[in-house]
Write a protein that binds this DNA or RNA. Sequence first.
DNA 1: GTACTTAGTACGAAAAACCATACTGATAGA
DNA 2: TCTATCAGTATGGTTTTTCGTACTAAGTAC
Lengths: 121, 121
Amino acid sequence: MNQSMTYEEFQARVGSVILTENGNCPVTPVVQMLQGKWKLQIIYELCIQSPMRFGELKKMLKPITNTMLTNALKELEGDGLVHREQYNEIPPRVEYSLTEKGTDLLPVFYAISQWGMKYIP
Amino acid sequence: MNQSMTYEEFQARVGSVILTENGNCPVTPVVQMLQGKWKLQIIYELCIQSPMRFGELKKMLKPITNTMLTNALKELEGDGLVHREQYNEIPPRVEYSLTEKGTDLLPVFYAISQWGMKYIP
DNA sequence: GTACTTAGTACGAAAAACCATACTGATAGA
DNA sequence: TCTATCAGTATGGTTTTTCGTACTAAGTAC
C-alpha cells in the first residue's frame, strides 16, 4: 500500500473490520500493547542489535530502572513480541531478541515513521 | 510498501532515520500522541462519521465521562488531528472532524490492523 | 417562572504508571 | 575471606491518568 491511500480506499478495504463497538477492533489492542514509556525503545534497540543482554539493554536505555526494564520485558515477552533465553551460568546470562511477531511490527513502524517525517519538525 | 517487508529492507530504508538516542525518533512521538484510553476510538468514530457533535461522540463512546472526552478532544485538536467548529447557537453546537493530518494516519491504522488481524484472535 | 437543551467546568477520589533505593544468590578470582 | 559480576526482587513513595459527581450559561418552549 502507498502513503497516499485515501480515507475512501481505506474504508472500502477494511471499513467493516475495524469495530470498536463490539471490541473486535484490531488497532486498539496493538497500540495498547505498545504503550508505556519504554516498550517502543526496547523494541527499537532489539531491531538494531539482537540478541541483547539485560545489562546491555539497560545501558542503552540509560535512565531506566531495573524495575521498569524488567516489567516492560516481561510484558513484551507475555505479548509474544520478545523472546527470553536464559543460560544457566554464573554470573547469570539472559538474552533478549525479537520474535517473528515482533519483527512483523516493522511495517507498522515504517508507516508511522512516514507520517512522523511528514508532520514532526 | 507491502506487509511482508523484511527487517533488512526496513533497516535499509529508514535504519538511520529512527533514532532514539538523540530524540529524533519519528515513531515515539506519534505513539505518544495516540496514547490515552480514548483517542484512538475518537479518531475511529470521526472516520466513520464526520463531522460529529460533542454529544454524539459521547453517545458512541458510551462509558466516557465529559471530562475525559473534553480533554482528549482538546489534545487531539492541539496536535492538529481534529478540527473543532463552534456555532454560536443556543443550546450550543460544536462539531468535530478529522483534519488532513488526522486522515493521513489511516495508512498507519491500516498497517496496524493488518498486524492485528494476523495476530489477534 | 419553570423545565429542558448542549457543551462543557470544577473538584476530589481512585487507580495506574513510574521512580529510587536497597537487597539477593551463586560463583569466580584475588 | 573479601570483593566483584549479573539479572533481577522487594518495598515504599511520587506522579500521572482516569473516574464520579455536581455544576454552569444562555436561550427556548410551556
